[in-house]
Design a protein around this nucleic acid. Structure first.
Lengths: 160, 160
DNA sequence: ACACGAAATGTATAATTATGCAACAGCTCC
DNA sequence: GGAGCTGTTGCATAATTATACATTTCGTGT
């Protein structure tokens, strides 16, 4: 029991990560209860602080099983967005356009991945893409739509 | 004003995405007030529902400016995890090992990206990597550590 | 026109989360 | 030893978010 009373914070936070990975945890009270079962003496207030420190996210469940939300690690958050969105956010450096062409610059060795993601998105305004090492050429169906398409890519990259 | 009364949900949700991208929004009440300024008649209850539908995330601010949290789109999550973690989650399909070698299978055209991310992580147990089109060969410093390293990759990929 | 069902929304409030404040523990310095 | 500082935690509750229920709106069929 002295071991329980002297439990360091780091160990408790690691236990939290294990718990939320093992099964859905719907509320901080629930999580506090689970920690109690593992021998940690802890309240909802401390769990709230842990969750904030760990950067855990409360995400909506898609099926409505039990509670309507669960806690996840930050890395699980992106799974809720489209593949193209994730890839753009990860590899795209710059987007420039002229007439009906958009040139996307990427980190070295990642252009093919972005080109594939763009193809997979099946945007009707895009005729096709050519990917090299760090550059993707996107052909837009008409010059009038180029700026809008470029803006979409920039929106997906988000603020830096 | 009739236009305000007949505002469709989709348009309001798009406005929400623009608002949270433009500056930090700390609470649903704050967001409801901002929407009111744009002519949407809406309450916190509806905003809560919108946020759930859009899958927006409430993330902790790192600086403590104003409120301690803000709302973001799921794609903004990547900033919270390491590059290797994100790349593994995005491209790695399988990890297998033998003696001091780990073979990682990836989506086509993405192996170089993963190899670069592994190199960038500078794990002391890894001597080096060789990346091809859809396969990365990882050389571990000793066979005794191969399983543990492989497990790390699998942990980062997470449940599928 | 009316009836019906589904979707959307507000009101009120239950449920959940965050935090101010005080207390305690641990560490360093004199 | 004591003083001072920092970090951690619980208590109590303020703040925030989610939701039950009722109402309204919209779309479809007769």
């Amino acid at each position: 029991m002295n071991e329980t009373l002297q439990q360091p914070k780091t160990k408790r936070q690691r236990a939290i990560l294990s718990l939320i990975a093992a099964r859905p945890v719907h509320s901080q009270d629930e999580l506090a209860g689970m920690l109690e079962q593992q021998g940690y003496e802890v309240t909802q207030a401390t769990v709230s602080r842990d969750i904030k420190e760990l950067g855990l996210l409360k995400v909506p469940l898609k099926g409505g099983s039990g509670g309507a939300f669960k806690y996840v690690e930050p890395s699980v958050g992106p799974a809720f967005t489209s593949r193209l969105h994730r890839v753009v956010a990860e590899v795209m450096i710059q987007a420039r356009s002229s007439m009906n062409q958009i040139v996307l610059r990427t980190h070295p060795g990642t252009a093919m991945m972005l080109a594939a993601a763009i193809d997979g998105a099946n945007w009707p305004e895009i005729l096709g893409t050519i990917g090299g090492d760090d550059t993707v050429l996107v052909i837009v169906e008409a010059p009038g739509k180029t700026t809008m398409i470029k803006q979409r890519f920039e929106d997906m990259r988000g603020e830096q």
